[in-house]
């Protein structure tokens, strides 16, 4: 289950005439959608942090100082304190932005690459629809975290394997979404016209059908990044996540939780970082859906 799995019928705002000009472009509509804009700002900021992290970190995120472990926030210039190895937590969280965004992006790319072609083929060719969709239904019958857990148990632990696991587990949702859109367009006039002009199937699918799936897929992807980050964090919690000393937030939270009662800052700040990022993607996804998805615009 995901925010992107269903299409919510309507959003609240009724356009004010004064703002009509802005509405003409999707960007304008996004600007009008204030929450979505906040989401976009959060994520652009995080992207900037991820890119500039090495220049922004006040301390070396990997430099241990075992004699100054678990300093409270603010002590000795450590804004968010130090962790169980005496490393500066603020620097680690800044650098961790990279990993969380990387996890989210990779998960979506994997599920996209696997799910979209499968869905397109199922939607376009009647003969392929049955087998592919049975497989998709079958995969969807397993809770996503269980699928991911089995994949990680098979491939071994580590950030990369977690990304593959969550990506694989999210692929069926993309397949189903793509299939739905392709199916609805297969018999559309312009498609049958192109077909009768002699275009081959691959060309029809790629040039004429897939572009129409872009809007719902972008919305879906945004939500999937959010759940991907959450699932990866859950796998870290079960001991299957990123390997030390990687400052991935899920892993930081997971190891820091041992100190929850003595040094709560070790698990609270990475948790907040995950929360803000996931929130950013979710509200951006909501905003994008309002803006991009013609089925829900009035």
């Amino acid at each position: 289950m995901l925010p992107g799995d269903t299409v919510s019928p309507e959003r609240s705002d009724v356009a004010a005439p004064a703002r009509r000009a802005l509405q003409r472009t999707w960007f304008g509509r996004l600007l009008r959608n204030r929450l979505g804009l906040i989401g976009a700002i959060i994520l652009v900021t995080e992207l900037a942090i991820a890119v500039l992290a090495p220049a922004l970190t006040p301390f070396d995120p990997f430099e241990q100082d075992l004699r100054n472990r678990m300093l409270p926030p603010g002590a000795d210039g450590h804004l968010l304190g130090t962790d169980e190895f005496g490393r500066d937590q603020f620097s680690r969280i800044l650098l961790g932005t990279r990993y969380s965004l990387l996890v989210g992006a990779t998960v979506v790319i994997i599920s996209f690459v696997l799910g979209v072609p499968a869905g397109a083929i199922a939607g376009y060719y009647r003969w392929a629809d049955g087998p592919i969709m049975r497989l998709v239904d079958l995969m969807l019958a397993f809770p996503q975290i269980l699928l991911a857990l089995i994949v990680v148990a098979t491939l071994g632990t580590g950030l990369f394997n977690v990304m593959i696991a969550v990506g694989l587990a999210s692929a069926p949702a993309f397949a189903r979404l793509t299939r739905g859109v392709v199916l609805s367009l297969r018999e559309a006039d312009y498609v049958t016209a192109t077909q009768s002009l002699g275009s081959n199937d691959g060309r029809v699918i790629v040039r004429h059908i897939l572009p129409n799936t872009a809007a719902p897929l972008i919305v879906q992807s945004t939500f999937r990044v959010a759940t991907g980050i959450l699932s990866a964090a859950a796998l870290s919690f079960l001991g299957l996540g990123a390997e030390p000393p990687t400052p991935e937030w899920g892993a930081m939270l997971s190891t820091g939780r041992t100190y929850l009662f003595t040094s709560p800052h070790l698990s609270i700040y990475p948790g907040i970082a995950i929360f803000i990022t996931v929130l950013g993607f979710n509200i951006l996804g909501d905003g994008l859906r309002d803006v991009l998805d013609p089925r829900i615009r009035r």
């Binding site: 925010p3 919690f237 929360f275």
Partner: peptide, 11 residues
């Protein structure tokens, strides 16, 4: 509700 779908459950 946005917060609710964004918070890690185990956390």
């Amino acid at each position: 509700s946005q917060a609710g779908i964004s918070i890690p459950g185990f956390w």
